[in-house]
Amino acid sequence: MDEGTWQRHASPWSVWTRVASLPLLLGAIWSHAWLGIWALVPVAVVVLWLWLNPRLFPAPERTDTWSAMTTFGERVWLNRKNVPIPDHHARMAHLLTAISAAGFVVALAGAFLNNLFLTVSGGLVAWFAKMWFCDRMVWLYDEMKNKHPPYAEWLRVGQKEVR
């Protein structure tokens, strides 16, 4: 993603609607039971949504929110080869990604097999691990913005209303 897309992705609308996309994807896959091959249509719509999502919403006026700092942490994480991050963040990010991926595989299998227990339990594991990962990204950003000044430039603090 380019700089403008990352700024738009910092919108709480982008973050929270993307977080809510996992059940939509699993439901789209599950729909093969009654749609057959046509289930590829809702799957494609969700995949298109996931691609459009960070590009769709306007950049927020303020970025001192949890959701914005999650995206900043992801940017720091993706840039870790150029600007190294502390080992404790890297270890946890890898662990949480692995847990989330394992949960996602179980949820996918459940959706393909139309097994509600596998779909829901795998989906919950994937979702909670991803949310924990996001929280770790906020922590990573908070720590790295003071160590690498260009990261601090992403932060825009909102103005408090004066009465």
Rank of each mutant, 00 (worst) to 15 (best):
M1Y: 09
T5A: 15
Q7K: 15
Q7L: 15
Q7H: 14
R8H: 03
R8P: 03
R8F: 00
H9W: 03
A10P: 01
S11L: 09
S11A: 14
W13C: 01
W13E: 02
S14N: 11
W16G: 05
T17E: 08
T17R: 02
T17K: 08
V19P: 00
V19E: 15
A20M: 11
A20N: 06
P23G: 04
L24K: 00
L25N: 07
I29T: 10
W30N: 04
A33V: 12
I37L: 13
W38F: 09
L40F: 08
V41R: 08
V41P: 13
A44H: 02
A44D: 00
V45K: 01
L50C: 10
L52C: 12
N53D: 11
N53Q: 10
P54D: 07
R55F: 09
F57H: 10
P58C: 07
A59L: 04
P60S: 06
P60H: 06
R62Q: 10
D64Y: 11
M69H: 08
F72A: 11
E74A: 12
L78V: 00
L78R: 12
N79A: 14
N82C: 00
P84M: 10
I85A: 03
I85L: 06
P86C: 01
D87V: 11
H89M: 03
A90H: 02
A90P: 01
A93T: 14
L95F: 02
S100G: 13
A102P: 00
A102G: 14
V106R: 03
A107T: 12
G110V: 08
G110F: 12
A111K: 02
A111Y: 03
A111R: 05
T119W: 02
S121E: 04
L124Q: 06
L124R: 03
L124F: 08
A126M: 06
W132N: 01
F133W: 15
C134G: 06
D135Y: 09
M137Q: 10
M137D: 02
V138I: 15
V138F: 09
L140F: 12
Y141A: 10
Y141M: 13
E143G: 14
E143H: 14
E143W: 08
E143Y: 09
M144S: 09
K145L: 07
P149V: 11
A152K: 09
A152W: 04
E153Y: 05
L155G: 02
R156T: 09
R156W: 05
G158Q: 09
K160L: 10
V162C: 00
V162T: 13
R163Q: 07
R163C: 02
